[in-house]
């Protein structure tokens, strides 16, 4: 076991874990933040996506020891880091079905918006590559385009 310090959603936290514990399980089991979901454990599905030092990262495949001192944003902190618009749209547009994958989808989407304010379909395909078994993809795409329109409109007004 070793002590790892992380900044999670703006809060400095330290946990005593085995160094090879994936960030996913540090968050879920040790910090009690279960919004980040376990899907596959091999970085295939994206359900566990968080922001690690600002970048979308599949937390099942990053060990605690590799990220000591890093800054992590999870779905629980998304609304404080500019994601509230997305979260409201996700509800209003009834995007989710079972909803299990959507925390990861939202985190991937929010990270994409940091790179580009008006993502193209090709950019969405590349950057929001999470698996959704319910097949909510058309609504995810529609919500992203709507969010881009709203953000551009907000930017123009400001």
């Amino acid at each position: 076991m070793s002590e790892i310090t992380l900044k999670v959603n703006g809060q400095l936290l330290s946990v005593d874990v085995a160094p090879d514990t994936p960030l996913l399980w540090v968050l879920r089991d040790h910090l009690g933040m279960t919004g980040t979901k376990f899907g596959c454990g091999i970085a295939q599905c994206g359900a566990c996506t968080v922001h690690l030092n600002g970048e979308a990262t599949r937390s099942c495949s990053v060990t605690a020891e590799a990220i000591s001192g890093a800054e992590v944003v999870t779905i629980e902190g998304l609304s404080q880091t500019g994601g509230a618009v997305l979260q409201k749209l996700w509800a209003d547009m009834n995007v989710s079905q079972c909803g299990y994958c959507q925390a990861g989808v939202l985190m991937a989407t929010a990270a994409m918006f940091k790179q580009t304010a008006k993502p193209t379909d090709a950019e969405i395909d590349a950057l929001v590559s999470n698996i959704c078994r319910c097949g909510t993809y058309p609504r995810i795409r529609a919500a992203i385009h709507k969010a881009a329109g709203m953000m551009v409109a907000e930017g123009a007004a400001a």
């Binding site: 279960t34 919004g35 779905i75 997305l86 995007v95 989710s96 909803g99 299990y100 959507q102």
Partner: peptide, 29 residues
């Protein structure tokens, strides 16, 4: 009317509790 599912806001903010998210005092894995 077609209101969004009552679960939708909690899903979007990560507070929705699925089976895997359950916490019970004294729980082991």
């Amino acid at each position: 009317a077609s209101p969004f599912k009552l679960t939708a806001p909690a899903i979007a903010d990560g507070s929705a509790v699925y089976g895997i998210d359950v916490k019970v005092p004294g729980m082991v894995h």
